[in-house]
């Protein structure tokens, strides 16, 4: 196996992993604390990507685009939470599925109305459009390196937020004991809104950074959402640590599998069979990983003790 290719693919896997973690962190917190399964989390990701594309194109500043994306999605998140989702916290999961499925349809169509059905391409900011030689003879796009760094930094920041701050303390307490949080004199409604906004902001950050890598189009949030759900069940629903471990695992398995599985099969099978089976198996690999993890540990890698 070519070591340079392996390194490149490992970095790609890491990049996918940190993106998935940004998505999964908010989703798993919202579920762990509020008991809400929010299928419309992908819409917040999409909102971030569009806001980024619009503000970047208008201002020419990538950073301004990022800031706008996070702010816009956090506001949108607060609006959705206050208008609809907070009514669903104690409800049946079925009501939550119905409402957030409706939100997905609504936002995808809204995006189509505002920006049209075609994909928008966002360019990589000029300062990062070069490649970096990570090893002699191994160039890697600078932008992706920055995405990885940003993702890791945000993960570290999130860890500090949850482990060290008052908000984090309340989040941890809220995940295991609602009544205790209320007893501390905290307005639980405000806490929930804050958590929701935090999750929305993280999703938007992922969407905004994905803009130059993927295409920005209506419905772009759902494939990512489904991958995120896989991450969450593999990690253990409600667990941030689990989400982090599983995001990296899924990121690596998907990238490495797609890159090497077809070649590997060509060594094992007849070429025609390998050409047919390789891509099929590679595209199913993360789901098979999920199946294996759940068969061994139904509660996921890190089971959170929540209801």
């Amino acid at each position: 196996m070519d070591p340079i290719l392996l390194l490149t693919q490992a970095l790609n896997g890491l990049q996918l992993g940190v993106m998935l973690f940004l998505m999964a962190a908010g989703l798993t917190l919202v579920f762990g604390i509020m008991g809400l399964i929010n299928l419309a989390h992908g819409s917040l990701y999409m909102a971030g990507a569009y806001a980024m594309a619009a503000v970047f194109a208008w201002s020419g500043s990538f950073l301004a685009g990022l800031a706008a994306a996070v702010a816009a999605a956090a506001l949108l998140g607060v609006a959705i939470e206050m208008a609809a989702l907070r009514l669903l916290y104690r409800r049946d999961h079925l009501d939550q599925v119905l409402a957030t499925f409706g939100l997905i349809l609504f936002f995808n169509e809204l995006a189509r109305i505002i920006w049209g059905p075609a994909a928008i391409f966002v360019t990589v900011p000029a300062a990062l459009s070069h490649t970096v030689e990570i090893l002699p003879g191994a160039p890697y796009p600078a932008y992706r390196l920055v995405v990885i760094a940003a993702g890791v930094a945000v993960a570290a920041g999130l860890y500090l937020l949850i482990a060290r701050t008052r908000l984090g303390m309340l989040i941890r307490a809220g995940a295991s004991n609602r009544t205790m949080v209320s007893a501390l004199g905290v307005d639980i409604g405000r806490l929930y809104t804050a958590v929701f906004a935090l999750g929305a902001g993280l999703a938007a950050l992922a969407g905004a950074m994905a803009g130059p890598i993927l295409s920005v189009e209506p419905g772009m949030g759902e494939p990512v959402l489904i991958l995120t759900l896989v991450v969450i069940v593999v990690g253990g629903i409600g667990s941030i640590r689990g989400a982090f471990a599983a995001a990296l695992l899924i990121g690596f398995v998907d990238t490495i599998g797609r890159a090497f599985l077809p070649a590997l099969l060509r060594d094992l099978l007849a070429p025609s069979a390998a050409n047919a089976v390789g891509p099929a198996l590679a595209s199913m690999l993360i789901y098979l990983t999920m199946a294996v993890v759940l068969a061994i540990r139904p509660q996921g890698l890190f089971a959170a003790r929540t209801g």
Partner: peptide
């Protein structure tokens, strides 16, 4: 093997798996 909300996510994931399988069936 799981219950409640995990069942929702897992069924969705397996359906997606089949979706991608079909996509790759050239």
């Amino acid at each position: 093997r799981t219950a409640g909300v995990a069942f929702i996510m897992i069924t969705l994931a397996f359906a997606q798996m089949l979706f991608f399988l079909a996509v790759s069936l050239k």
